[in-house]
């Protein structure tokens, strides 16, 4: 019961953190393997489309989190406290959505690997 509302509050940013690690790790690993594996070569479309896919998936997940929060029972109720939690959660999730959409936008056109 106790820590759940706070955990739900930061869920959007937890997705952002996961996306950060996932995209960064995929990019770094692919670049390191690219010397041997032509399929992953940075000039090809494969790596870029995987990264774009991850990026879009994470945006969708943050939106899903936002919808989940709207329906969550931990934040429902009409008391002053749950109203406060609802308000803060909405702000934080909007911030998370914007951060996710903005942080990884470079995958569309920037140089993928330093080769």
């Amino acid at each position: 019961m106790m820590r759940r509302p706070v955990l739900i509050m930061v869920l959007g940013f937890l997705v952002w953190s996961g996306a950060f690690l996932g995209i960064y790790f995929t990019q770094a690993t692919a670049c390191s393997l690219a010397t041997e594996n032509q399929f992953l070569h940075p000039s090809g479309w494969a790596l870029r489309s995987v990264l774009i896919g991850l990026f879009l998936a994470s945006v969708v997940m943050v939106v899903a989190v936002y919808r989940l929060q709207r329906r969550s029972s931990a934040l429902s109720g009409d008391t002053r406290t749950s109203d406060f939690l609802k308000g803060v959660t909405t702000y934080v999730s909007v911030a998370a959505l914007f951060s996710t959409a903005f942080c990884f936008i470079g995958v569309f056109w920037l140089t993928l690997c330093a080769l």
Binding site: Y24, Q27, F102, C103, F104, V107, L110, T111, L112, C113
Partner: peptide, 11 residues
Amino acid sequence: PHVALSFFSAA
């Protein structure tokens, strides 16, 4: 690589 720098720069 520049694309990785861009994540951190945007953040």
